[in-house]
Write a protein that binds this DNA or RNA. Structure first.
Lengths: 343, 343
DNA sequence: CCGGTAATTGTCATTTCCGCCCCTGTCGTC
DNA sequence: GACGACAGGGGCGGAAATGACAATTACCGG
């Protein structure tokens, strides 16, 4: 797939999509299709109109990579084969849980494409990444001091590795100057819409959204997050506290009580939790309760008041506040999003 | 991309994905990735576990097709190269508005693959289609008397062409026996989840949904539908009526009044509308008003009561009912889904 | 046994925010 | 048209989190 003809001399925008081994092929295919649809709807009524977008797929070495899941993707050459793109897109990368291997892939990509990416950005082009693609940009230093996001399950790793980036946890799409980033897998669709909006305006983006069946205004990744495994640790006191909490989540549970139970003081408990788990005991309990409520919303028809009681709260109003802070959606919307039972 | 090894002798399920010229490549890539993720999450804790899914991409003639937007897709061969798949998937096809050309593509596909598809289905395999893929199945006679859906903008065409199919307008995913179908573009993600659920259970599907950032329970295409261009016609009376309606939508408007205005009777007006446009004058007016309300919800901050008045209604309660019947969501949710302004 | 040092814990004041209560408005259902 | 479940604003008393600093403990070599 190669680019033909000129671009910057006209109103037509050129997009270069970077494919590489193990990349999320659907992000590339989706973006292409969204641009294709935008071309169709943008030229409504005039079939001879110049298309709004052109695009080409490239790879670091110019050879066809094998995407995630084993799909072969044909490319038009190395990055140099798309002269003067208006936008560069880097898809994500599957993370299987092996941090070392993952970071090594990122480092290798950054080495191959970092200089090119920096040059593109300095040359005034828009750079858009989705999912783990943000790591490549961060590694290349392009995100220092800038807003960015990534897949929700990579958030902690990202924040730890790149403290200089203005990391926006849980956001779906971020924009900072000419740098766009987006979250997990299908967030690339929201990113694609943002790109269409950027070059073609909000009305065109909305038309595309309706054809594609995407909310034009999905707002965050928060509702999708699940409680991740805590860091392993050896703190005997905290371990005992965790165990005690786990077996009493359903009951009213105060930190003071808990401290007494473990023959220590609230202050110590607080300090140790923060040190080892990075949060307060109360927070820990709340997280568990919210996760419990999510399970009940997903798998039962109990009404919210009942669920509130089951996870150890009395007042629906307060627990709703906590639930919404964690998930960024209301309980009923959460249920509509993730209910397992038939509807 | 080829399948290696056996399949039906074990618990592993094999999926054959059919690619063809102009097909929606992202549907293929997405399904592959969803299956890949399902393999990862399904085997949690046991890296040596046999994967739940295997897959292979094929094309009618075994050669690599060029997907929508110009993306080349590598295939493992013709349909015969995936022996005994457990599921066959057919992606959609871009519809640019040229019905004749579209139907010719469908006919050609049905000719190439119809017999194979029928054999697969008769052999007990699951057949899944997304978007315009339903036309291929319908053309091959596999959908007669069965539930099916397709992209919302193809609904009328589908119903007209295949009256024997139990067409479910606006549904996102349908299942009838071993035949699955899904609606517009990204509905293939919902279909993919349904496939995972079918072979791996609801809990696994939910885990995948959260990683992919998909609602596990998106319910319909209705909110995304927009008023489509009406059929062109020559009925002078109806044309005058349409014109009169368009210029008076904002005012209270009765069919009786309208008939008087055009020097005819309500009965005639009804008959002619039904004959030419397939709906009643009242329905026609309502459709316009709902569409007007949608525009206002998308682009302004006016509250619903105000909008109701602007489109010519008095009672918010009754207009809400009409709005919800058409869109299947409440006005406030519609605004949250498609609001153009910042939020 | 002692004093020095560092790590940990306790005390307390401050601020934040939780949890409970009131209420109204919206939505879907019957 | 009425009802019940849900959403969410606001206020208040009290619990929780945390910083600063003092007190205690643990661990040394001398």
């Amino acid at each position: 797939m190669t680019i033909t003809g000129p671009n910057r001399t006209t109103g037509c925008k050129t997009v270069a999509l970077l494919a590489y081994d193990g990349c999320q092929g659907s992000a590339i295919a989706s973006l292409i299709e969204v641009l294709d649809i935008a071309n169709l709807y943008g030229a409504r009524g005039d079939p001879r109109a110049e298309p709004l977008f052109r695009w080409g797929v490239v790879s670091p070495d110019g050879r066809a990579p094998v995407a995630m899941g084993g799909l072969d993707i044909a490319v038009g050459g190395s990055p140099a084969s798309v002269p003067a793109p208006d936008l560069v897109f880097i898809p994500g990368l599957h993370f299987t849980g092996d941090v070392a291997h993952f970071m090594q892939q990122i480092a290798s990509l950054a080495q191959d494409c970092g200089a090119w990416l920096r040059a593109q950005h300095e040359g005034g082009r828009v750079v858009a990444v989705s999912c783990a693609g943000a790591f490549v940009l961060a590694e290349s230093g392009l995100l220092d001091g800038r807003k960015a996001t990534t897949s929700w399950w990579l958030g902690k790793l990202f924040r730890a590795r790149y403290p200089r980036v203005d990391f926006r946890e849980g956001e779906l799409v971020t924009q900072d100057g000419r740098i766009l980033s987006s979250g997990a897998f299908t967030a690339c669709l929201d990113l694609a819409l943002r790109i269409v909006e950027h070059f073609g305006g909000p009305a065109l983006a909305l038309s595309c959204a309706k054809v594609l069946l995407i909310h034009a205004k999905r707002d965050s990744q928060f509702p999708y997050m699940t409680l991740q495994a805590r860091v392993a640790h050896q703190d005997e006191l905290v371990l005992r506290a965790e165990s005690h909490i786990r077996s009493h989540v359903r009951e009213t549970l105060s930190v003071e009580q808990l401290a007494a139970e473990l023959a220590t003081t609230p202050r110590t408990l607080n300090r140790r939790f923060r040190e080892v788990l990075g949060c307060s005991p109360k927070q820990y309990i709340q997280d568990l309760r919210v996760e419990g409520a999510k399970r009940l919303l997903e798998s039962t028809d109990l009404d919210f008041g009942e669920i509130v009681e089951r996870v150890g709260y009395v007042d629906p109003r307060s627990f709703r506040r906590i639930f919404e802070r964690a998930t960024k959606v209301s309980p009923s919307l959460y249920r509509r999003m993730f209910s397992i039972s038939q509807g």
